[in-house]
Simulated scan of single mutants.
Amino acid sequence: MSVETEWIRYGENGEYSGYMARMADVGEPLPSVIVLQEIWGVDGHIQDVTRRLAKAGYVAFAPDLFSKDGERLPGFEQDRIEQAKQFRNTIKPAQWADPKQRSAALSGLPVHQREQIERTLAGIFNVGGMLPELTRQVVSTSAWLKETYEYSYGKGVASVGFCLGGTLSGQLAVRDPGLRGAVIFYGNAPSPEQLPEIQCPVSGFYGELDLRITAAVPEFAQAANEADVDFDYHIYDGAQHAFFNDTRPSYHVNAARDAFARTLLFLQRVLTDSPES
């Protein structure tokens, strides 16, 4: 059975858009998975993950968080993002995290290319200021899949997010009491103050070497346990940030394989209405 894919506009006035994948010849509505992008947008990797989840039997949908009214936000155009991503892939994690080292690496590029990448990176590094609006879009996406979209109407919704999307997956769990489950791949966890709002299981996957994110996980796990939040997590030895992305040098095949298997088991648990059947 083939997977059908398409770009869809949605929202009250069609202001949002995203990449949809689903099994082509399944007639009844299916549970859905929101696939939440890295800072690089709904690129080839995120589209591939969306198709993989569709092949597992879900309606999979990746909202394009950098688009509004069918157009990419200035500086977030796909070619500009791809250019910045390719630059990121040429430098080590320590250089990326250090503005001076990052600037030194950029200085070796042609002036026009350097200026374009710098403007795009400035937008990416300021994406935290967009989190309230992005969270509203993600909450709207969940409601649309459950209440409007014919191929997932009335069925459960879960989320799987990476990096920026991992953070948003956790925020969706905070703000959507009907969410069935949230998976966080190397994203910032919700704050302890938000924990009482989470009504669904949460699963997290992290790289040992991704210290900025991973160092905070044990404390969050303890706070989640005290708040009776069902939170399970795995930290992979020798894995960096973005270990699941097979288009980047950070890809860690063993960690990615294990995390994907665990993600599928998690989704089966939270999205199956009758586990006994």
Rank of each mutant, 00 (worst) to 15 (best):
A189Q: 08
Y16V: 00
L265D: 15
P29E: 13
G129S: 09
H234Y: 14
L265V: 12
G207Y: 06
D246L: 10
M1N: 06
A97T: 06
A21G: 03
T148A: 13
R212A: 12
N225I: 08
F266K: 10
R80G: 12
V49C: 09
L168W: 01
A223N: 03
E77L: 11
I124Q: 10
R88P: 00
W7Q: 15
T50K: 12
R119E: 13
I91M: 10
N13T: 15
P132H: 05
F185Q: 12
D246R: 09
M130W: 02
Q113A: 10
V59A: 14
M130N: 09
E133W: 01
Q47W: 00
R51S: 06
K100M: 15
G14Q: 13
L211W: 07
M20S: 13
P249D: 07
Q171D: 09
G156S: 06
L109E: 07
F205L: 12
I91R: 05
Q95W: 12
T167R: 12
I198S: 02
A227T: 06
H234G: 04
E147D: 14
Y149M: 14
Y233P: 03
R102W: 04
F260K: 05
R80Y: 13
G166V: 04
E15F: 02
V217Y: 06
F76T: 02
L179F: 07
Y236D: 11
A216S: 14
V111S: 15
E276T: 14
A242M: 13
F244P: 01
V174P: 05
Q78F: 12
E4N: 01
T214Y: 08
V111L: 15
V26E: 11
R262T: 07
G129E: 11
S2W: 00
R180I: 04
E133N: 04
G207K: 00
R51E: 12
Y251R: 07
A223P: 00
A56I: 08
E28M: 14
G18T: 08
A227R: 03
K92F: 06
T90M: 14
A256Q: 05
L73I: 07
A24L: 11
A227C: 08
P63I: 08
S140C: 13
R22H: 11
I46Y: 03
F205K: 02
K85E: 12
E193R: 04
E147Y: 05
R136V: 06
Q171H: 08
F185I: 08
Y236K: 05
L36N: 04
A143V: 10
A242S: 14
S32R: 04
G18P: 04
G18K: 00
Q113G: 00
Q37W: 07
R102I: 02
T5D: 06
K92V: 09
I213Q: 04
D210K: 03
T263A: 11
N254P: 03
Y186L: 03
V139I: 15
S32H: 08
H241E: 06
E6V: 07
L134H: 00
E226P: 00
A24W: 00
A54I: 01
E28V: 13
A94S: 09
A242V: 05
S67A: 11
R9W: 07
R212C: 01
